[in-house]
Amino acid sequence: MTTSPLANPGATRALLETYGLATKHRLGQNFLIDNHVIEKVMDLAALDGSECVVEVGPGIGTLTLALLQDAARVVSIEADGELEPVLRTHALEHDNFAYIMGDALRVAPERIAEACGGAPEILVANLPYNVAATIILQFFQTMPDLRSVVVMVQKEVADRIAAHPGTKTYGGYTAKLGLYAGVTGRFEVPPRCFMPAPHVDSAVVRLDRHEVPLASEASDVDRICEVIDAAFAQRRKTIRNSMSASGFDRAALDAAFNACGIAPTARAETLGVEDFVRLAACLSGKWREDNE
């Protein structure tokens, strides 16, 4: 089992004191202090030693030190400048570790690939909860070689990620993420596993990129996301009314609904990702071209 020397309260406190650090709630910092959770994360990641792993929000490096044991290389992205001395020490002690200081949502994928020595294949991270959902989707969108994501997030975010059509937690975000990947693993993490203990429950989820893309061209993905946004813009309304209120022509909508077999009286949360793909194709005329 792969563990971390920092995944316990004593070691975490000692390191924080050594560097004169304190947790910052504004950055969503809650340090993991349970080695059992580290073991389960590593089991779910299932690294084979050949991967370059990208990590977001390494903090003091609790998960990082476990990743370095199993990965070929780890590149961590950290927004808190006060943590750089800790990460610098890790980099001096591990020649397969590099870090980038900055906002993960603003760091160019090319910069990450350069630090990795190639495109990263997997994201493994205890994500800052306030931006977790955005990071997951953006990384899948901007890093086509990223095949898997194993991340710790707030339980409510995990519920949204794994939601199925027809449930309250299923929404536009779930549908967009479903264009790229699907959930293949999950486990819960209680607040007692962190220092300080957060006021929310957490969960670790694994997503794997679809082997066969649901939309292969960027223009198709943009069109599908536009349809998803319009469909969920007023989720209490029928999909026809919600999309027309967002600017879609009613006649074009009716023709598309008829062509792809979707009831105009349906609500967005009842449609699966494949339904949105089909609807976007029908609205563009591409579905009719492909099926003539």
Rank of each mutant, 00 (worst) to 15 (best):
T2L: 07
S4W: 01
L6Q: 12
A7E: 00
P9Y: 00
G10C: 05
T18N: 09
Y19H: 09
Y19L: 05
G20S: 04
L21C: 01
A22V: 05
H25K: 15
R26K: 09
R26V: 08
Q29I: 00
N30H: 11
F31I: 15
I33A: 09
D34V: 05
D43G: 04
D43Y: 15
A45H: 01
A46L: 06
S50Q: 11
E55G: 10
V56L: 05
G57E: 10
P58I: 02
P58D: 03
G59Q: 02
G61V: 11
T62W: 11
T62A: 07
L68F: 11
Q69I: 04
Q69C: 04
D70R: 13
V75N: 02
V75C: 02
S76I: 06
I77D: 06
E78I: 03
E78W: 06
A79T: 09
A79I: 11
D80I: 04
E82A: 05
P85H: 00
P85T: 00
R88C: 09
R88P: 04
T89L: 07
E93K: 12
D95P: 06
N96T: 11
Y99H: 13
D103Q: 12
D103Y: 11
R106S: 08
R111P: 02
I112A: 02
E114L: 08
G117W: 08
G118K: 09
A119D: 14
L123S: 06
A125W: 09
Y129C: 13
N130W: 13
N130T: 04
V131M: 12
A132K: 08
L137I: 05
P144C: 01
P144N: 07
D145M: 09
D145V: 04
L146I: 02
R147W: 02
R147D: 15
S148K: 14
S148N: 12
V149L: 01
V151P: 10
K155M: 09
V157T: 12
P165H: 01
G166P: 15
L177N: 08
Y180W: 14
A181N: 03
V183T: 11
R186M: 08
V189R: 07
P190N: 01
P191Y: 00
F194R: 06
M195V: 07
A197Q: 14
V200D: 11
D208M: 07
R209T: 01
E211Q: 13
V212Q: 12
L214A: 01
R223G: 15
Q234R: 11
R240P: 02
N241M: 08
A245V: 01
S246L: 07
G247D: 06
F248T: 03
F248W: 12
A252W: 08
C260D: 05
G261L: 02
R267K: 14
A268P: 00
L271D: 02
V273C: 06
V273P: 12
E274L: 10
D275L: 05
D275E: 13
D275H: 15
A281R: 15
C282W: 07
L283K: 07
G285V: 09
